[in-house]
Design a protein around this nucleic acid. Structure first.
Length: 780
DNA sequence: CTGGAGGATCTTTTT
DNA sequence: GATCCTCCAG
């Protein structure tokens, strides 16, 4: 509800007088603005201390967004700044959108004046466009996405004679992104970093790549920040104009900032900046894409005298859920430390359940959901949070079988689908004739006889002449350089583009888009495709054209989609929510299922291998994020057997399970984790096991286990039968004796505690009691 | 230049 | 299991 008595929407920003937060205004504010009444003591401190740097540590469910938006409203209300003088940055478009909506709800129309509210990248792009020439670009530069980036790098790698098999472009793209995230230009890549790709050649290509971008008049996502930094550093006058403009700065999710963003913020904030950063070090889960938890841990050093407010009153979860999450996260070393509390007293314990395999896990969770549904639990209020998206499949299969409605959040995004990207490429070439990457994408899609040979010739010519591909094509069509067929085909394509281009101003852009897709043959390409998904692709193309309707013209649409890759969906029907732990951050549900808590999967082996203890701590934060999404009930499960890449692996319970405080956890004893069950047996055969025990992951897990023997687990002690192979090829009675010491490839050394036919129960020294087949152990 | 076969690979995800 | 990529025969 708009409550602003000053009607900021009508204030004329151009008038000479600037709001100074004068005595009168402050006095009015002191009369206790209504929006302040809804806040608790800590929140109020965070809102009212608007001058000077402050760090707001907002634990999960402590009203972070409310504080952020109220603080903004407070600045406006007390007339300390105009809407256009506040810089407010978020990470995602979704967050920016939400913030805008919520501020709008407090201050009304004045939110439209907040022109500097947006993501780091969109604000970076805006700043760059204003002074593009100063960094060697034109104001209409194109923004490349990851796909374009990789295709461009491939060309450079090939041109440099590097074996692309050995050194994939994707890897170099990752390295370059990493450098850009850390604010590193080609000139100051460290020697050690440089070695990581093609014996140091990576840096040369990085430099070539930057040069190419300038020629193409393009910037990638990293450049939107990195080039901004250069702009500020090389042009003090530009920097100071922005410093003067931004009276107040707000940063959301500060724990996710990377070095480049950090430098960007510091430059803009200056020494005495009124900068407020909101974040939670315990929810930093994006280290793998450059986020530096260190930024938040170091805040007080960076901004001496900063006010630090901890929001610890949790309004979301029950005490057991909070305690379980707190107990878990307490195992991390590098944290600022917060203790969440709640005034609630009731609630169920966190449940932990052990199951045989992924199928049983999905079945169990689906059963639970049906039971909840009978008790009128909304499906919308249920979420399943998985570590990796490949785990979603089992659940989807089960839900489809049962007819339970569900939605996948995250997942492959609309603008990343092939057909949408192709369609966009046609539009881009029409609007931006020199967009080489877009042109190359569709030059032979649909097939029109313009293959590698032709494209290579165009490239050579374009490079030699220093012109773009379409210009090169235009020139070569007039000559005999190309084969007759290619010449004809290319000529037609160019004529088409010229015609479409001439219609840009004459035809509504949605109609033009339809025309382009039809006349280029792109639509019929999919119409003639017999593949099952062709129909869906055609619908996506329609949707693409539809979505253009909201924009004024083609150029405006293209600018929007290069920065906003997500599509806002107004999904209202009642469905189960299925997503990765990463995309769950910021959301909350009454009931949350957390499947797949197994060593190697969660914590993920790759995180441990790549980043060691830091990786482990990030995984633990991810677990913390998962548990704290739940308001009333959290159900964790793990399997004994997991199929990964179509290979069966036996799994150990996640170490995180042992880190949950016992008092807050209920262990649901394994229904049928081993032996005798009606399922599971037939899935195993010796081949699978052979394969299993030889995978790299397996060996890795073993060496890891040997290096850090896990403490005896409350969960690991339930016996697990390794492969139910009780068939004729094994003797019925084992030749082993009770008490004999044996060695098992996976579990290590142990003593035989019981013998049942060819099944042995063994007390392993490192992994507790297991049931295994005698053929998997050796006498020691 | 095209299409199909065979091979390698496979966290997380935003902009 | 699925996808993406390369290689080779037509």
């Amino acid at each position: 509800m708009p409550i602003d008595p000053f009607d900021l929407g009508s204030v004329d920003e151009s008038e000479a007088a600037r709001p100074t937060g004068g005595i009168a205004a402050r006095a009015m504010a002191a009369v206790e603005a209504p929006y302040l009444k809804k806040l608790n003591h800590e929140q109020r401190r965070a809102v009212e201390n608007v001058d000077g740097p402050s760090l707001i540590l907002a634990g999960a469910g402590t009203g972070k967004t409310r504080v952020l938006t109220t603080r903004l409203a407070h600045i406006l209300h007390t007339r300390r700044a105009w809407p256009g003088q506040i810089l407010a940055v978020t990470f995602t478009n979704k967050a920016a959108r939400e913030m805008k909506e919520r501020i709008g709800a407090i201050i009304g129309g004045a939110v439209e004046g907040m022109t500097w509210l947006g993501t780091f990248h969109s604000i970076g792009a805006k700043i760059l466009r204003r002074d593009a020439e100063l960094v060697g670009l034109r104001p209409d530069f194109a923004i490349l996405d990851t796909d374009d980036q990789i295709r461009l790098l491939k060309q450079l790698i090939k041109a440099d004679g590097i074996d692309e098999k050995r050194w994939p472009a994707r890897q170099l793209a990752g390295e370059i992104d990493g450098w850009k995230n850390r604010g590193i230009t080609p000139n100051n890549v460290s020697a050690a970093d440089a070695q990581s790709y093609a014996n140091g050649k990576g840096v040369e290509i990085y430099a070539e790549y930057q040069a190419r971008l300038k020629i193409l008049n393009a910037a990638d996502f990293g450049d939107l920040l990195l080039e901004c930094l250069r702009l500020f550093q090389e042009n003090p006058d530009v920097l100071s104009s922005y410093r003067e403009r931004f009276k107040y700065m707000l940063v959301d999710e500060y724990q996710d900032t990377n070095v480049a963003q950090y430098l960007w913020l510091r430059l803009l904030a200056g020494n005495a900046g009124n900068i407020a950063c909101v974040g939670d070090d315990d929810q930093s889960i994006y280290g793998w894409r450059g986020a530096e938890v260190d930024n938040i841990l170091r805040f007080e050093k960076d901004f001496p005298g900063a006010l630090v407010v901890r929001l610890e009153e949790n309004y979301r979860s029950t005490p057991h859920i909070l305690n379980a999450a707190s107990g878990l996260i307490a195992h991390n070393q590098g944290r600022l430390g917060k203790t969440l509390r709640t005034s609630e007293t009731e609630g169920e314990k966190v449940q932990v359940k052990s199951v045989w395999d992924g199928e049983e896990e999905a079945r169990g969770i689906a059963d639970d959901i049906e039971n909840l549904q009978r008790k009128d639990h909304k499906l919308n209020e249920i979420a399943i949070l998985v570590r990796v998206s490949s785990l979603m499949r089992e659940f989807e299969d089960r839900f489809v079988t049962l007819g339970l409605p569900y939605r996948v959040i995250g997942g492959p995004r609309f603008y990343e689908r092939r057909e949408v990207r192709d369609g966009l490429a046609y539009l881009k070439v029409t609007a931006q004739p020199d967009n080489d990457l877009a042109f190359e994408r569709i030059i032979n899609t649909p097939k029109r006889g313009l293959g590698n040979v032709t494209v290579q010739k165009l490239h050579e010519f374009a490079r030699a002449q220093g012109i773009s591909l379409t210009r090169a094509a235009r020139a070569l069509v007039e000559t005999d350089e190309l084969s007759k067929a290619a010449r004809k085909s290319l000529g037609e394509l160019l004529d088409n583009f010229a015609r479409w281009r001439s219609l840009i101003d004459g035809l509504p852009h949605t109609e033009l888009a339809e025309m382009i897709l039809d006349e280029s043959g792109y639509t019929s390409m999919w119409q003639n495709d017999k593949a099952a998904d062709a129909q869906g692709r055609l619908e996506n193309l329609k949707e693409l054209v539809n979505s253009m309707g909201e924009f004024e013209n083609l150029a405006g649409f293209l600018e929007h989609i290069s920065l906003v890759m997500d599509v806002q969906t107004a999904e209202t029907s009642d469905m189960i929510n299925l997503m990765t732990l990463h995309s769950a951050k910021g959301l909350e549900f009454d009931t949350v299922f957390l499947p797949g808590w197994e060593e190697g999967l969660f914590p993920h082996q790759r995180a441990l291998d790549d980043s060691g203890n830091a990786g482990l701590e990030e995984e633990r934060r991810l677990a913390y994020v998962g548990i704290t999404r739940a308001r009333k009930l959290a159900k964790i499960s793990f399997t004994s057997n997991r199929r990964i890449h179509n290979l069966w692996q036996s799994a150990m319970p996640s170490r995180f399970l042992d880190e949950l405080p016992e008092a807050d956890v209920d262990i649901e004893s394994a229904s049928d984790t081993y032996g005798g069950g009606s399922f599971g047996q037939s899935r195993f055969n010796e081949d699978v096991f052979e394969a299993n025990y030889n995978t790299p992951g397996w060996r890795r897990a073993q060496s890891h286990q040997a290096a850090n023997p896990a403490p005896k687990s409350r969960f690991g002690s339930s016996p697990v039968l390794e492969g139910e192979l009780a068939t004729s090829e094994f003797s019925d009675t084992s030749t082993y004796r009770l008490g004999e010491r044996v060695f098992h490839d996976k579990f290590g050394y142990g003593a035989i505690a019981a013998i049942d036919g060819n099944k042995l129960t063994i007390d392993f020294e490192k992994s507790g009691r297991k049931r295994v087949l005698d053929s998997f152990v050796a006498r020691h």
